[in-house]
Design a protein around this nucleic acid. Structure first.
Length: 589
RNA sequence: GGGCGCGUAGCUCAACUGGCAGAGCAAUGGACUCUUAAUCCAUAGGUUGAAGGUUCGAUUCCUUCCGCGCUCACCA
């Protein structure tokens, strides 16, 4: 994937180094630097920043005024600084003052580079220095300095912008006295701009040979060590801004995540779906659509108890009633539950609903979508997740929850659903189960309905045996596991539902929707009973939703996909926190 | 919430059985105009996550607390 989000081909080298926004001071070109700014021979584009509209000033002030240390020490600093860091920050503040003395605002604005690092790579590729010299630019780049190799009167900088990295070569006899004085106030981590022709150094690295150089933003805190970077995952999540700068691949993960979302959006738009937004603040009776505990909040002016939504389902189905036959929502939902490698309290789902479709239609659509995602995001239909190759090329195998769950218990599907010999089979299975937690799970299931027992047996014995080298649809869900699904006409003990598993993770859940208002009312009533019996994940009775169904919802199929887990798969990330920019962490101290 | 593990300089890590808290990078001063973790000389940098306890002596052992990771339960 091309990491550059900019122009696909390099713009022709601009005659002027940098674009100026209105109100800015025009850039000096050849011979128009501040007084005393060094020799004027050769290409001598100059990049510098002047505060406001004032003219350039102060060419040769002391670049490093002494007596600023006291000032720096008085600058408000956080209390949590060690002596080393305090000293580093004080030094950098002194350098910021030195920049001001040179007429350079250490937090200047108004100067935009006209090129990206990737533009130079795209233009020159592997061309040798001699050919680059035939058409060397100039080029104008800006970015964060990740490394400095200083030789006294010259230096190599490793510059990083949104497209990649490019080396900048700052030579005193090329940039002139003043810009070199600016360079001398540089620290790793600062954001700089450089202008000059391209070249290739003796060691073969594509390089901007700076004819003009300035510091745009002074970083007063040091970056982590250049070689090891940040390895403490806690710091990486808490200070994602640092992580993005210094940890290779992090930016690419979030670029891919954005591409996942845009690919889904385009996929559904092309098929006539309408994107909508529904409330995230739910009244208590609306906060259903899934089995989960909601977050609670309160609206002051209305004095209203509210919950953050746990699903988008019930509102989207109301819209299908209203005639929006194909709708989808990509949005954040919140579930007040545990946190682990696959769960974050807030996460993103895509839910879409299609009238006059069945869950069979959605299986085909899902296969097309996942194949498309793999190609668009990773460039190929076969992805690699944690060392396992997974082929997302359709079709995907179907695995029957009923047949496999019953078989794991040594029963026929008929006997299992009828409960014949089920208790004994379950006890035998639990007894031979080595894993204590799984055995406990089976024992707990014994108190539940036959359908739920089959589902539990499938979960314990069969889920881990699903194909690892490709996705799999789990089908034939017992009715009791699916309160919002439509019963199967051919066998009312089952529902028309599937879940898609990839790499052992459930990433999609879909079914033909229940649109019989009487049945829906009965199922909500069952939820109320469950809640009264202590199930705090049971749904509330949403009277208005039943009312909507009473107006008639066309036969509809709907699906929900976990965007975060999809991002894990397509970026080969082992933890959901690696695909969430700012995962929830406890407050420190 | 349970179990296991981790927390030492800005960053990455050492410190034996309880015995003077150390190194690399970064920083600071100096040399160096083709480097790739540049090199060389010198200097400085510590509330060992926090609070207690045991001990002549605690980074080390014990207790409690805080934070993070893995895992189990719940869940998508």
């Amino acid at each position: 994937m091309n990491p550059s989000a900019g122009p696909s081909s390099p713009r022709p080298p601009a005659p002027m180094s940098c674009r100026r926004r209105a109100g800015g001071t025009s850039l000096s070109g050849e011979g128009r630097g501040p007084p005393g700014a060094g020799s004027g021979r050769g290409l001598h584009l100059r990049v510098f920043r002047v505060d406001g509209d004032r003219a350039p000033r102060i060419a040769c002030a002391s670049p490093f005024p002494r007596g600023n240390r006291e000032m720096a020490d008085q600058t408000p600093l956080s209390d949590d600084l060690g002596a080393t860091e305090r000293e580093i920050i004080a030094h950098r503040l002194e350098k910021a003052a030195g920049l001001r003395a040179l007429g350079v605002n250490p937090y200047g604005n108004g100067l935009s580079p006209t090129h990206l690092a990737a533009d130079l790579v795209a233009r020159y590729g592997d061309l040798p220095a001699a050919q680059i010299a035939e058409d060397p630019g100039p080029w104008s780049v800006a970015g964060r300095v990740l490394a400095v190799r200083d030789f006294g009167k010259a230096a190599f900088l490793k510059l990083q912008d949104r497209s990649g990295q490019i080396q900048v070569w700052v030579k005193k006899d090329r940039v002139g006295e003043r810009d070199f004085a600016v360079y001398k106030l540089l620290d790793v981590g600062d954001i700089v701009a450089a202008t000059g022709p391209a070249t290739r150094t003796r060691t073969g690295e594509l390089t901007v040979e700076a004819a003009g150089f300035t510091i745009l933003t002074k970083a007063t805190r040091p970056l982590p060590e250049k070689w090891h970077g940040l390895t403490d995952v806690e710091q990486r999540y808490r200070q994602r801004y640092v992580d993005l700068v210094v940890t290779p691949g992090v930016r690419e993960v979030f670029v891919k995540r954005a591409r996942i979302v845009s690919t889904i959006r385009r996929f559904l738009d092309e098929r006539g779906y309408l994107e909508v937004e529904t409330p995230t603040l739910h009244k208590p009776e609306e906060a259903g659509g899934a089995a989960a505990r909601p977050f609670e909040t309160h609206h002051n002016a209305l004095d209203l108890e509210l919950k953050l939504r746990i699903a988008t389902e019930l509102h989207l189905k109301r819209l299908v009633v209203g005639g929006l036959d194909r709708v989808y929502e990509i949005g954040r939902i919140w579930r007040n539950e545990g946190i682990d490698r696959r769960h974050n309290p807030e996460f993103t789902t895509i839910e879409f609903y299609q009238a006059y479709a069945t869950h069979q239609d959605l299986m085909t659509l899902t296969e097309q979508l996942f194949h498309e995602l793999a190609v668009q995001v990773t460039g190929a239909p076969v992805i690699t997740f944690q060392g396992q190759a997974i082929d997302l090329t359709p079709p995907y195998p179907r695995v029957s929850m009923l047949a496999e769950g019953a078989r794991a218990l040594g029963l026929s599907p008929e006997d299992a659903l009828a409960g014949r010999g089920l208790a004994e089979a379950l006890a035998r299975a639990a007894a031979r189960e080595q894993d204590g937690a799984d055995a406990w799970k089976l024992e707990q299931a014994a108190r539940r309905s036959p359908g739920e027992i089959v589902a539990a047996a499938f979960e314990v014995f069969c889920e881990r045996q699903l194909p690892k080298d490709r996705p799999a649809f789990v089908v034939d869900f017992p009715l009791e596991t699916s309160p919002l699904s439509r019963r199967r006409d051919a066998d009312p003990r089952l529902v028309d539902r599937f879940e898609l598993f990839v790499a052992g993770m459930e990433v999609a859940n879909a079914f033909s929707e229940l649109n019989d208002p009487a049945d829906q009312r009965a199922r909500f009533e069952a939820q109320l009973k469950a809640k009264a019996a202590g199930d705090d994940e049971a749904m509330p009775f949403d009277e208005d939703f039943v009312r909507a169904l009473e107006h008639g919802m066309p036969p509809t199929a709907g699906e929900g996909i976990g965007v975060d887990r999809l991002a894990m798969l397509l970026t080969d990330s082992p933890s959901i926190r690696d695909v969430i920019l700012f995962p929830l962490l406890k407050t420190r101290e």
